[in-house]
Design a binder for these strands. Structure first.
Ligand code: ZN
Ligand code: ZN
Length: 983
DNA sequence: TTCATATCTGTGACCCCG
DNA sequence: ACGGGGTCACAGATATGA
């Protein structure tokens, strides 16, 4: 418990006047919010979510901060802002005049400016200046309307002058609220609806810079462009991009000197000492993680002590310096990092941000153009891009503890506390009405949303606590009342402390909506969690927990908190709730999937992670919020169960990785005499399928994402000096230079586009023939075709989603697909291959575990197949673990594979050119991506690729031969006729 | 309608703990 | 110590009501 910590739970009605002596005498009339104060803040942050768009804008903010009781909102400004808005847009130096107006004295004016600046954060506060910042207490500490205009920072004298000036100059004008809302250009005004980020005033036209020195916001040293400017279409919409710098918005370092920083802030005012980058203290190299990231055990050895970037005695001064710096730098925003968080070195705030948002069901909106730079300042402006960045750099949402785990943790903590009985601060931490949780009232396992919403809930509770301490059922009513008035807000899971003994819980693993978790969970472990036991404590614990449950889809195993019986009883008491079916065979945990259970696919709801987790999201169903107003029925949108009704189309868990049979497809067929016929037919099928998918109009039209293609100049060259050359696989040694592993906006966008293109690849298989085929233990060639059909079409769709693909001629497209399909499928298979069991793992379907053992798969095949099998296995082994685990990397590989020059139908010169270009493009992007994840390690991974691709090619070339001599006679005739229809 | 205030909400610095 | 989660001051945004 904090030494400085838990001092008080101040419940007084008065405002705390903490350390501001001059304020003490102010009569405190108004009832104040209860403020609990644990420790004193050292740093203060400007949490402004709205980026100022101009210096003028900043100044306005400043002004508000200084001179209004409450900045933000529509009414904070007394009459000043009216005037500002009325004049401001035509008369840009209103503030200047304002300042001049009330003090013609140069010195005083200076002082005012300084104050502005002070609150602006362009200068470090001196200690006594800190007293002048307005605490929120002070802000609300308003004795009368008159004084409310000027709260803290201004002396009485100043205040009078202000009043005087204002009275002279302001006229009644349009309402502020009008201005602040309706009159904002609608194109950029984004009404706040709960989750959307709020960027309200960013559309102000850039205004001329007031001609005063202090309005010059230092562009900070022109150093090392941390980020390249976002890749825009030729003419970036003027208002659409946050302009963090000066008006001219010169591309350059994203070092925003306006950010308000105080205390021992990391910021250093340019003219005061170090010319270093103020906000982003780590120079260009910040992007990448130290090599050790996720690299243990992957077999790649570190050289030059790179991997041991923590180790102080790296031989090479530069590189150790370099790596140290990188290690201290948040790979998301460049801020000072505290260590690894969710698999990546990040700062505290990104850690918290990720923890809070990675699992959120709805996607954020980017108020700009989906390519926001993320730095320590701008990170607040666009949650979407920030979150995307988090995923891109490799943060793993899977590592966020799920509800079950949280509960356990809490319990064990309670236990410990109970036994040692050391509760130092009785009334403090625990919420009064949620007293130390009884073992089974703990809110639970409805994963995901539950966790997420619970956070909301907790916050509310917290807030409630801050009001008069006792909370009674009334509070709930109030809360509900409130919520009813805020339909947009995702209703927090209500767990009325009094009335509802089992708050938001469904028992572990027992609700209709659990199936998704089930599947998702499996996925998580299939695709992701390497057995290398990356992390010590928590992680290990979690892994063991989850993997345990994934292996045993039963709800016992000590996982259950509420017995099924208990839960049923509970449900019985809840009007409208039904006992879900499927109760018992589901497993608990896994929050993510729980988000989405209401049956529709949630295209828009997917989060943009680049990690493999993506597929989880895209598969899960949105369960969350729909209803849930009524506390009692809420037991979790859970039973939005329409999705799980028997007859309905197979929901979420049927996420077959058909493609994992990439190898199987072509190998598992067979076993007879009519080989030739089969072979021929298979080939026909193969080609037809591709062709027809190609011709199909319904396939994905590429969105106008210009990021996808060949904007090569926009990308940074891969840092290790192995920009991918047409000259294949000739990897030059890394040059010594200042490296920047951080992906730039263009690259991020391109990656996004890739992910976009693969959207749907992992969709669950529709029920039907494919599914039946898939479920068969012994798959006939027809079954294989059924499965392949879907998969191949999806690949074609992916290809069509790549803009550059369209530039290729029809014949060229066909050639690419025909030549690349098997390779792509095989690559796909890699990701599902589990070396420990020598089998492909596929997610479960209604409890069945479909896993295909490689030996079995090849068993019936001919000798060629055995060789093929060996090759495949070798390839699987060779394919880097790190890549395997990373879905996006795999995508990139697949695209690189797709864009390989093929000869079968020979390609035209032009096609060849495009293909080569794209191949290089994706390889280069992959390289950069890997760099961003692994820093110098990327090189090692990347270096293996060429060989891997070679192997792949070999595998694919031989695939067809496997048919030979193994096809049962007559089998070919059984093949579905429509596969061979000629159009 | 305007404005003061209350409330909701996301952020991030600090903290606790296994 | 590391890296999970928890806490809560803060401040912007929004709702409410005089
Ligand atoms: Zn960060
Ligand atoms: Zn954005």
């Amino acid at each position: 418990m904090g030494t400085n910590g838990g001092e008080t739970t101040s419940v007084s009605m008065e405002t705390e006047t903490n350390e501001n002596p001059e304020k003490v005498e102010e009569p405190v009339v108004r009832r104040k919010r209860v403020t609990r104060r644990r420790h004193r803040r050292i740093h203060s942050k400007n949490n402004c979510l709205t980026p100022p768009n101009s210096d003028d804008d900043r100044l306005r903010t400043c002004f508000l901060i200084m001179y209004t009781p409450q900045c933000g909102g529509t009414s904070y400004n007394g009459g000043y802002m009216d005037e500002y808005y009325r004049q401001g847009n035509e008369n840009h130096d209103f503030f200047k005049r304002f300042c001049e107006g009330y003090s013609s004295d140069e010195e005083t004016r200076e002082e005012i400016y300084r104050d502005l600046q002070l609150h602006y954060g362009t200068q470090p506060l001196s200690s006594n200046q800190q007293n002048r910042q307005i605490s929120s207490d002070e802000q609300s500490n308003v004795a009368s309307p008159a004084t409310s205009r000027v709260t803290t920072p201004v002396s009485d004298d100043e205040f009078l002058k202000i009043i005087e000036y204002t009275e002279q100059n302001s006229r009644p004008v349009e309402s502020m609220s009008t201005l602040s809302q309706e009159r904002r250009p609608s194109s950029t005004y984004i009404p706040r609806t709960g989750w959307e980020s709020t960027n309200t005033l960013c559309s102000l036209e850039p205004l001329p810079l007031p001609d005063h020195k202090i309005f010059k916001f230092e562009p900070a040293t022109p150093q090392t462009g941390m980020f390249t400017p976002p890749m825009h279409s030729p003419q970036p919409p003027p208002t659409n991009q946050p302009s963090y710098h000066n008006f001219d918005d010169a591309p350059g370092p994203s070092t925003l000197s306006w950010e308000r920083r105080q205390g021992q802030s990391t910021y250093r005012f340019p003219q005061m000492g170090t010319p270093d980058d103020p906000v982003i203290h780590s120079p260009p190299s910040i992007g990448a993680a130290p090599g050790m990231n996720g690299y243990h055990g992957s077999g790649v050895k570190l050289e030059e002590g790179i991997g041991a970037c923590g180790s102080p005695d790296d031989g090479n001064m530069d590189s150790s310096e370099e790596s140290r710096r990188r290690q201290k730098t948040c790979r998301v925003c460049g801020d000072h990092a505290t260590g690894y968080n969710f698999n990546v070195i990040t700062c505290e705030s990104c850690k918290a941000f990720f923890r809070r948002n990675a699992l959120r069901p709805k996607e954020f909106k980017c108020p700009y153009s989906e390519d926001c730079e993320i730095n320590s300042v701008s990170r607040r402006f666009c949650q979407k891009c920030r979150l995307r960045k988090c995923f891109t750099v490799g943060m793993k949402k899977e590592w966020i503890l799920n509800e079950e785990q949280l509960r356990r943790r809490k319990n064990s903590r309670l236990n410990n506390n109970g036994s040692s009985n050391k509760r130092p601060q009785p009334g403090h931490q625990m919420s009064p009405q949620a007293p130390p949780q009884q073992p089974h009232q703990s809110p639970i396992p409805h994963p995901g949303v539950a966790v997420y919403q619970q956070q909301q809930h907790q916050q509310q509770q917290q807030q409630q606590q801050q009001r008069p301490l006792t909370i009674n059922p009334m509070e709930n009513n109030q809360m509900m009342h409130h919520m009813q008035h805020r339909p947009n807000v995702m209703p927090p899971l209500m767990s009325p402390p009094v009335a509802q003994p089992y708050p938001l819980t469904s028992p572990v693993g027992s609700s209709a909506s659990d199936s998704p978790p089930n599947r998702s969970l499996t996925m998580m472990h299939n695709g992701e969690k390497s057995p290398d036991g990356y992390d010590p404590n928590m992680m290990a614990h979690r892994i063991s927990q989850t993997s345990l449950s994934s292996n045993r889809p039963k709800m016992d195993n000590g996982q259950v908190v509420l017995s099924t019986e208990e839960y049923k009883q509970l449900l019985a008491r809840i009007p409208g709730a039904q006992v879900p079916g499927l109760m018992n065979e589901e497993e608990p945990i896994n929050k993510r999937a729980a988000y989405n259970c209401n049956g529709h696919p949630m295209p828009a709801d997917t989060t943009p992670p680049y990690s493999n987790a993506m597929s989880d999201m895209s598969l899960s169903r949105n369960n969350s919020t729909s209803s849930g107003m009524q506390p009692l029925t809420h037991v979790n949108g859970t039973h939005s169960s329409m999705s799980e009704i028997p007859g309905s189309s197979v929901p979420t868990q049927s996420h077959f990785d058909i493609a994992s049979f990439g190898m199987g497809i072509v190998t598992a067929t067979g076993g007879g005499d009519a080989a030739e016929e089969m072979y021929r037919k298979m080939n026909t099928f193969y080609e037809r399928c591709i062709q027809s998918a190609l011709d199909s109009p319904e396939s994905q039209e590429p969105k106008p994402l210009d990021a996808m293609h060949h904007q090569k100049p926009e990308y940074m060259a891969p840092n290790h000096g192995f920009p991918y050359q047409a000259d294949p696989y000739n990897v030059p040694p890394p040059p010594e230079r200042n490296i920047n592993y951080q992906l730039n906006a263009a690259e991020l966008k391109a990656l996004d586009a890739v992910r976009e293109a693969f959207f749907g690849m992992d969709d669950p298989m529709e029920q039907g023939r494919q599914m039946q085929s898939f479920l068969k233990a012994n798959k006939s060639p027809a079954d294989i075709m059924n499965i392949m059909d879907v998969t191949m079409r999806r690949f074609v769709k992916v290809a069509k989603g790549v803009p550059a693909f369209r530039e290729v001629s029809q014949e060229g497209k066909f050639s690419l697909l025909k030549g690349g399909m098997i390779e792509m499928l095989t690559v796909r298979g890699v990701t599902r291959y589990d070396p420990t069991t020598n089998s492909f793992k596929t997610p479960t379907i209604k409890g069945q575990n479909v896993s295909v053992n490689v030996d079995d798969m090849f068993a019936k095949l001919n000798a060629n197949a055995q060789a093929q099998k060996a090759k495949c296995l070798e390839f699987f082994g060779f394919f880097d673990e790190e890549i395997k685990k990373n879905e996006l990397a795999v995508y990139l590989v697949m695209l690189a594979v797709l864009f390989s020059v093929r000869v079968d139908p020979p390609m035209t010169e032009n096609d060849v050119r495009i293909v080569q270009e794209q191949h290089n493009h994706f390889m280069s992007l992959l390289s950069r991506y890997l760099e961003s994840l692994y820093g110098e390690q990327a090189r090692r991974i990347f270096e293996r690729l060429p060989k891997a691709l070679g192997m792949l090619n070999d595998i694919a070339r031989n695939a067809g031969m496997l048919f030979m001599g193994t096809v049962r006679s007559g089998e070919a005739e059984e093949l579905p006729g429509e596969f061979f229809k000629i159009k």
